[in-house]
Design a protein around this nucleic acid. Structure first.
Length: 254
DNA sequence: AAAGGCCACCCATTTACTTCA
DNA sequence: CGTGAAGTAAATGGGTGGCCT
């Protein structure tokens, strides 16, 4: 359809003083045009570009120049504003949609990154457990050795008692101190101490335990999944038409 | 200050046309 | 070529707010 199309001559009225009342009924202007001419549209468009609302005096002047009723000019501006507004809305919608798509893809890559980190953490945890088990087995063997050697010590002590306290050897004094705690294989007698040792080995002196590390990850996850946080995300649901999107936001969490 | 008329605007809808399958 | 659906611009009518008397 061409803008500014006109009525056929057969439809022209012979009455040049057609009243507005009649014009309203017939939906024609005084030249019996259903649509304004290209020239008229051009002038109206130019005026609209400089100002979207017309002062009454300018309206009358423009109407006179274009051979239209001031009312027609006013209505043209009204309709033009409505068309312009709906175009603006469309533009804004497209911008918002673009932003949404960008955020969506950013979120996807972050999700993948997080998944990789969680897998890595899981792998490290398993390795740590395996090492713990190995060390425990080693510990049992060591304890057996200690038990065997302690029977030898008992026979030695018997001999020492016979000799008297002044004859206690220096190396024995050291061993007696050790039995009060905090030394050598005690780490292996005490589960916590042992585990701390392993953890230090794995986490390079960090005080954080693996579970704490897990806890660092988990809240971040729950934060992302929290609907409260997403409620804060400024998005107009009317603008972000989810129904037209093949990838709705709630699918992020699946 | 309250009431009423006038005017311009917005918005949803109608009308009259064109285009196209 | 005729026809009906879809699209569009011009116009209508109701509602509303600002201004003036």
């Amino acid at each position: 359809m061409t803008e500014g199309g006109e009525y056929s001559p057969a439809m022209m009225s012979s009455d040049p003083f057609l009243t507005m009342k009649k014009m309203k009924k017939s939906n024609h202007n005084k030249n019996n045009q259903r649509r304004f001419s290209d020239e008229q549209i051009k002038s109206l468009e130019m005026m609209f570009e400089s100002e979207t609302r017309l002062e009454p005096r300018k309206k009358v002047q423009l109407a006179r120049e274009l051979g239209l009723q001031p009312r027609q000019v006013a209505i043209w501006f009204q309709n033009k504003r409505a068309r312009w507004k709906s175009k603006q809305l469309e533009t804004e919608y497209n911008i918002l949609r673009q932003n949404y798509d960008n955020l969506s893809s950013q979120f996807e890559s972050l999700k993948k990154e997080k998944q990789a980190l969680v897998s890595e953490l899981q792998r490290l945890k398993e390795a740590m457990q395996k090492k713990t088990q190995d060390e425990e087995r080693q510990c049992c063997r060591d304890q057996a050795v200690v038990a065997l050697s302690s029977t030898d010590h008992e026979s030695e002590n018997e001999e020492n008692r016979r000799r008297g306290p002044e004859e206690v050897r220096p190396e024995m004094e050291m061993e007696m101190k050790d039995e009060k705690g905090h030394h050598d294989h005690d780490d292996y007698d005490d589960d916590d101490g042992y585990n701390n040792n392993i953890k230090r080995e794995y986490f390079g002196g960090f005080e954080e335990e693996p579970d704490h590390l897990m806890n660092i990850v988990e809240p971040a996850d729950s934060c992302l999944t929290s609907s409260d946080d997403w409620r804060g995300f400024k998005s107009d649901t009317t603008l972000l038409d989810q129904s037209s999107n093949n990838y709705p936001w709630w699918d992020f969490w699946s």
